[in-house]
Design a protein around this nucleic acid. Sequence first.
RNA 1: GGGGUGUUAGCUCAGUUGGUUAGAGCGCUGGCCUGUCAAGCCAGAGGUCGCGGGUUCGAGUCCCGUACAUCCCGCCA
Length: 784
Amino acid sequence: MQGALRGREAAFRRARCRLRGGAASRARARLLHAHRLRGAGRGARGPERHRRRRSVRRALRDAGRPADAWARLCAGLRAHAARAESRWRGARGRRGRGRVRRGRRRERARRRLRAGYGASGRGRGCRARPPRAESQGAAQARRQARRPRRRHRRPRRAGLGRSDGARHAHEGRTTGRARGRACARRGAHRLGRQLMFDARYSIRTHVAGALRAADAGVEVTLAGWVHRRRDHGGLIFVDLRDRSGLVQCVFDPEDSKAAFVVAESVRPEWVVKLSGVVRKRPPGTENPGLATGEVEVLVTEAEVLNRSETPPFEVESAIATDETLRLKYRYIDMRRPEVLDALALRDRITQRFRKSLEHRGFIEVETPMLGRSTPEGARDFIVPSRLNPGKFYALPQSPQLYKQLLMVGGLERYYQIARCFRDEDLRADRQPEFTQVDIEMSFVTQDDLLAMMEEVMREVLREASVDLPIPLPRLTYAEAMDRFGSDRPDLRFGMELVDLSDVFAGTEFKVFASALASGGVVKAICAKGAGDWSRGRIDALAPVAAEAGAKGLAWIAFSSEGEVRSPIAKFLREEEMAAVRERLAVEPGDLVLFAADARMTANEVLGALRTHLAGELDLAKEGFACLWVVDFPLFKWDTEEDKWSANHHPFTRPFDEHLDLIESDPASVLSYSYDLVINGIEVGGGTLRIHDADLQRRVLKVLGIAEDEAREQFGFLLDALTYGAPPHGGIALGLDRLVMLLAHKHSIRDVIAFPKTSSGACPLTGAPGPVSARQLREVHLRPE
RNA sequence: GGGGUGUUAGCUCAGUUGGUUAGAGCGCUGGCCUGUCAAGCCAGAGGUCGCGGGUUCGAGUCCCGUACAUCCCGCCA
């Protein structure tokens, strides 16, 4: 309960922050206004309506602002913020309680909160003053972002922090003031370590975002988009925006009447070329919120290069816009620093992978997009062959088979930034096409490969100013499941699973006793700070547990006042309670949750609860907890098809010491396999491969793939393995997911230039679309 | 394939128990305005309440269907 209150408090403060402070007073007045005016013009039309509203406005102005109106407004905001907050925390468990309405509105509000805007509206206050009640982690991240960096070593990654959005919009995507100043002297601007973005090879002499006080007196020509125009009648300010940032341009009719006339006509997003002189702004008019805030350009020549329709949303406020609309007009959306930064970060990460791998002797090889469909794994996207009636290509789910063939071919070290396709249902972190950093090596042990990858990852993450300590921790699959109930545990918080089977060995509590009697376990987790939750909130955890396979959910709540609530406590002996307290290090205010079931089920139930509670309790979400999960079982039992299936893929190499068990005890065969996990998200995975044709046949046989079937589907690989295949192994990293994590995004759509919606459609191009009957005929398909 | 949530002006959203001609902020258009920086002030335009049925004297509001979006399960490494 305390956690919930704290969350609401914080949300409310975030919402309210925009209503505070000098710069916010007008926003506050305006909101108040809106609130009071509601209905003032109701029933009237046209001039009459406006007359009525005018009179209300006047009355308001005269009467001041009644306190109760302000209170009502605050109450409304608080409710709104609380709803947004509860939605944000994934309050799915409380579904149906009260009349809390959730949905798109709160989804948007949540996005705004994250972006540092107010709970509604566009948070004028936040521009001048960042949200006060931000999470500790966010504050820390911000401090780090502000910490001066070593010059010329590392670009500042503005816009990656959660609360950077608003501030960043004005700073432009400069990469550190120190560098900016240095580069400005030669009219250059650097975006990222290796990428020089400046005015060379263009119709301009400088880029907008790089101008500094040192440039005063320099004649410049700029080109870009009109970000905003402030027309004072006798003086016009235009913020000119290009990829590098913003600079204020001044049009004074006394300096150039012609330019002034142009400025009068321009509108947001028009494309212009401006020439003029850089000068220091008059004292008192500097804008410290802008990287170029010390200077302005006095424009003497202005040319409109292109006009623009009124954009469907404002470039600056797109964060608060429906994502489908943003995707439809992605070319406008990506003018925002937030999108641009994500793409630029992605580029840096990609380049760093290339460089790091190249330095280690890897050769980048392109593999075919038009391949052959195989029944294993995900559903293929298929492409009909015009030249081969009735036959189809398949787009690659991954270059898996090709890269093994490259190893047989003696490439020894291969990599590829490879596009992969899977025709499966989509998620926030799944797109029908996505990018893998695909790697394969010959003559390596698992340790060789992991060590190499750790070094590469360290270099890559450094590109995002993340210091990755290596070697990374390694957990076996068994240990990960046992301690965290997940094969991709989030190690940013504890809440480990504790086995209490021995404690309850002789218990009289039937549920526990029967679970133990049938060979199961009793395990528990301790949720710090949930001990004061209401009965209803605790009960809302039951569906979470049930979804993971639990038959019920036993719990004991220890309130802050030392009170014990529990539906099961009365069945437990005193010494059992004492043992629970001791083993789980229970303190007042904790909630202990039990799972009594088969070991795997109990693990999964508590794992699901652990993840869910971490969200509810808002446990530490900062930093990058990176680890290897290794030694996965080779097979898993497919209950639907009633057969063994490959845990990873059919080419995974079993432990040498388990080769004898393949046929006799498939379940206990472990494999040389590894997943790279960051913050509870699987970022990559790989295995050592089978390089022996006989062994490969044995594994395929266990998988129920008959000899002739195997020939038909993988014959080429089986053949290849007979011609001197070296021992080899590799890994594939989900580039989209990795960049998503490093950019602090919540969907890979945010780090893809032109992503698809959850139904696989592209709102921008309209893909997938129909094709003509003739096209169908040509590929030998009949329309339905 | 299943479940949750949503769809009201260009954008973000209100819209009370079903009740007269559906509102706000921003944006847009026009006017005024020489130091703004989300400029300000004044005026104005802008709506098939996603779509199709139904209940009702009366539906933005209730019911059914459907499309789309989004999150989750299944699926997918």
